[in-house]
Amino acid sequence: MTVLLFGASGYLGRAADEALRGRDARVVRVSRTAVHDDSWVRHDLVRGGIDELAELLWAVRPSVVVNCTGLLDGTTADLVAANVTPTAALVDAIARTVPSARLVALGSAAEYGRVPHGLRVAEDAVPDPVSAYGITKLASTLLVRDAVTAGRLDGVVLRIFNPIGADLPAGTVLGRAAQAMRVALRQGDDITLGPLDAYRDFVDVTDVADAIADAALATVAPEPVLNVGSGRAVAVRDVVAMLASAAGFRGRVIESGPAPSRSNAVTWIAADTTRAQRSLGWAPHQDLTTSVRAVWQHA
């Protein structure tokens, strides 16, 4: 089993690489930056042309293509280029060059937008994203789903909720909090974050990686869109308090910073993971306390 892994140097890509290799898959890692050794290939899904991508697919002849690239923040044009264009290129190039290969793409809980408080959202909910990020992730999902429905592609989109754990990037609320706490512990300061009253579904990055590996290596084609979350919504304020406890941070957390534009209108989100359990046999295993400790230990 050969897996062509785009975004292998990123947060989710590194975890997926480890999970796939742990199941004896041959992983050809793709990055747009430096090539580390013979198991890496340099390619930029945003700037590279369709012919160049087709040549790469033809050379590797993968059984599975996993795309872990993407952009959380930026201009609308940047988000379209990073989140939609690569998916369109992969759908066309795979259908043209290696039509038997499966595409595993990563979606986002942001595709759902506002959902009823207290309920877990399932894949058949009508998506209504409230930010350019969510809109571009939904567009990517629809491209894959429509290609699957038309019989052009063996593909699945994993809608990832809020991944946390070791090496969490600073672009997320817990990543920012961990970074701020490290500075504050040295300088004796309080920290300032945005509003923390929303409820989010936090899922460990190793559980996300297992879901990616499950989807990539499944012998039967999975359902085309699957939620990957813990199934539990937790107040962000409580999770930041858990992080402060793990860090030994006793200063104040001041919530006067700007809210993130991609999610500030969503006050509650939790995943219904029934389909992922049915289609992949996947379920999350890591508890939230362990995940939060890993955020701090590897910040």
Rank of each mutant, 00 (worst) to 15 (best):
D44R: 04
A247Q: 01
A241R: 13
V65C: 02
T69F: 08
R278T: 14
T141P: 03
G7C: 07
L90R: 03
G155P: 05
E123N: 11
S108N: 08
I269D: 00
R23N: 09
V104W: 04
A54Y: 05
R237V: 09
G134Y: 12
Y133Q: 04
G107E: 03
D189V: 05
I135G: 01
G257Q: 09
S39R: 14
A216Y: 05
T76W: 12
R275Y: 11
L142Y: 13
L153Q: 06
V98T: 14
E223Y: 11
F249H: 05
G229E: 03
L106K: 02
V64T: 15
G171A: 15
D204Y: 02
D38A: 14
G113L: 09
G10Y: 14
G155L: 07
D204T: 03
R23G: 08
A77P: 00
T206G: 00
A218N: 01
L142Q: 14
Q297H: 11
P116H: 14
S100M: 12
G48M: 09
R252N: 12
G70E: 05
A184Q: 05
G22A: 10
D189K: 08
T274H: 13
L12F: 12
A105Q: 12
A283G: 10
A166I: 06
Q277G: 14
G171K: 11
P129C: 10
L143T: 09
A246L: 04
A110R: 06
D207L: 00
A150C: 05
A59Y: 06
A81E: 11
R159W: 12
Y199P: 00
W58Q: 11
L142G: 00
R14N: 08
E18G: 03
I164P: 00
S131R: 06
R21S: 08
Y112Q: 03
A59V: 07
A34E: 14
L193H: 02
T290L: 05
P99L: 10
A125E: 12
L138S: 07
F249P: 00
R23M: 08
V228R: 00
I269K: 01
A216N: 02
A294T: 06
A180E: 12
